[in-house]
Design a binder for these strands. Sequence first.
DNA 1: TCCTAAATAAGAATAATTATTATTTAAAAT
DNA 2: ATTTTAAATAATAATTATTCTTATTTAGGA
Lengths: 145, 145
Amino acid sequence: MEVTFSDIQSKLRELGIKSTIPRVVIYQHLLKFNRHPSAEEIHVSIQKKYPGVSLATVYKTLDLLVQNHLASKVVTDEDKVRYDARTESHIHLYCEKTKKIMDYEDDVLEQLIRNYIEKKGIPNFDLTGIQLNLKGQSKTLKKQQ
Amino acid sequence: MEVTFSDIQSKLRELGIKSTIPRVVIYQHLLKFNRHPSAEEIHVSIQKKYPGVSLATVYKTLDLLVQNHLASKVVTDEDKVRYDARTESHIHLYCEKTKKIMDYEDDVLEQLIRNYIEKKGIPNFDLTGIQLNLKGQSKTLKKQQ
DNA sequence: TCCTAAATAAGAATAATTATTATTTAAAAT
DNA sequence: ATTTTAAATAATAATTATTCTTATTTAGGA
Ligand SMILES: [Mn+2]
Ligand SMILES: [Mn+2]
Ligand SMILES: [Zn+2]
Ligand SMILES: [Zn+2]
């Protein structure tokens, strides 16, 4: 189920985006992360195999991916943006201790909110996105005796 | 219904925080804003009457207020933190055009979410806060003919 | 294979925030 | 009221994340 280099090439070309090695590699790495990496983290993770790719290119490419709905930004209380290869609206769990961001799968809750808002409507506001972050601490998972 | 200088002095002392002019002034100004200002904006708004207060002190004081639950941080896609004198959980409307953040009063929706999560529970996660941001565009309010 | 517009690398610049330190001040103790 | 002192502040340097600039490289069409 690996997304190959040429899979990504096609995807980019489909969207009318020039396919370059840095772009494919950055997107490929973002897809492999399931932990919402920062630009810096992606840059580091690419170093070994592609030491030439500059951090500025990572930033610009991530921006490009966001613009083209192949990625999304995730903000937290920390002073750095993190990125997500998932672009459909979904709920995030943010651990304030470990700074880990996890996807929280609950379509029912999402629909609940969406329906409520749709039914009620927000005066003088065109809603384009719902962002729900659940903050807390992930419990140290001790094996229970 | 103005919150006076000495009201704030008392509040700070209650919490065991030394009451200083910069602190009182900063908190007083944050309370007057209802639009989620950045540190910079608060600093500017204070200049006229208190030109001596430094930006670093504004940052440190806002942090102190957050630590003591007199204020909260609000993050958006922009690269700056904004502050809120409201500390109880509440919903935000974020206008992507004007960058305005508005409070969206809807206790029913909040309870809906809170109940759902409470009932269901999140495995291996101690929930401490719920953050719901509604993104979109505030409609240009034209008087309808 | 050649051409050219677009992308990149490298590094400088900027913006937000934090750290450092000499000076000032609130408030506790005299 | 004065003195004392730990804590807070102003000023400014430093840091971090991100964006900008520009000379060079490259993807992909001719
Ligand atoms: Mn920053
Ligand atoms: Mn920044
Ligand atoms: Zn996610
Ligand atoms: Zn608010």
